[in-house]
Computed example of a mutant assay.
Amino acid sequence: MSRILSIAPRLEDMVLYKISAEEAFNPHENIPAVTLQHLRRLAIYWPDKNIISRLFSHVGVPASLAVNFEHCQVSDLQWLLPLTHNDVDHLCISALTHSVIAASPLKAVRFSTKDDSEAVVVQWIAALLSHFQSKDIWLANTYHWDEFDEAIIKHTSWVETLHLGSLNFINMIEILEKNPTYWPKLTKVVLSRPYHLSNILKLAESRARLGCPLEELECYGMRNTVVEKYSQDVEKIKSHVEAVRLHKDGTIALPLPDVCTDGVPSPWFQWQKKLIELKPRV
């Protein structure tokens, strides 16, 4: 692979699918390091420790890059996570696509797993989230498993802003309502749709009683008929939340760098633009 990359310096997208380190890099070949300054997206399926270490020791990549680590096992995270920066700005979690995206203004790394066993997935999400310290969580959807939602909450105690894209986030909100000390720094909640505002009201009340009230609530899709339906809940929420912003239209755009979605769409790179557009992988 080193020879191939050396004659393709303008490569923009690269996918490594079920490839071994021996197939990719021959340690006996005397080939100089390659710099792929035009590379935008890199996807590695079933990442192998040897191939990752050899890849990044042989290949220089630009500062702005979107990386997919697909089908990661829990054991992979022990060596894979230290390769990534932990100073990301946003974490985007989707149970539907079995993935977590760690994003900053220039880079984004997407981790996914194919294992849908509850015990394994809970271990996987806990190991991932323990590595990062982002203040923003973007939750597209969950499995509605108590253990999964609790793993997210318990391993992200630094969260200040919660973005909710799922239509059914009652389970997580109920956990937060009953245990408001889990996220002591939480000050803002953003809803992609105006559902379950009665549960948001309970959350606001519980945090106010604790002395760490929500400061902001934003809600999209608040058309006139919806506002009328939830008017009582909204008014009660306003008594506990300093700033309540209702948006008639619009959707929540995921905070991904342009490098994730620029160019020709490819099935190898799963980057969605909106929080409620996350769909199952093919």
Rank of each mutant, 00 (worst) to 15 (best):
I52A: 02
P194N: 11
H58N: 09
G263T: 02
V189Q: 06
K248F: 09
L217N: 05
W46E: 15
I19K: 05
G263H: 01
P265A: 08
L214W: 02
W46T: 10
L164Q: 12
S112I: 08
L5H: 02
P255M: 05
L16V: 07
E235M: 14
D48W: 02
A24V: 01
I237R: 05
L203Q: 00
D136W: 00
G221T: 10
A151G: 00
V227R: 15
P27N: 14
P62I: 00
W271P: 09
W46L: 09
M222S: 02
R54E: 03
R40Q: 12
V282W: 13
K238E: 09
L164Y: 10
I7P: 04
L191V: 12
L254H: 04
R281F: 08
I173C: 13
A208Q: 06
K49Y: 03
S104M: 07
P280C: 11
N30H: 09
E29S: 14
V120E: 13
S198D: 15
S231G: 01
K154T: 14
F69C: 08
W183I: 05
H196D: 13
M172R: 08
L246C: 10
L217V: 10
P180N: 09
V159P: 06
C219V: 15
V74L: 13
D13E: 15
K107P: 05
T97M: 13
N30S: 13
Q133T: 14
A33F: 01
P62C: 05
L254I: 13
T84C: 11
S94M: 03
F25W: 14
F69M: 14
W46S: 09
W124P: 04
F25D: 02
M172V: 13
N224F: 11
P105E: 07
H71N: 15
V241Q: 04
L201N: 01
S198G: 05
V226D: 08
L164A: 13
S20I: 04
I7E: 12
A108L: 11
K178L: 12
K188L: 03
I44P: 06
A43I: 06
Q232A: 14
S266I: 03
L16Q: 02
S6Q: 14
A66C: 09
E215C: 06
W271R: 08
M222V: 15
Y230P: 01
L77S: 00
D89K: 04
S6K: 11
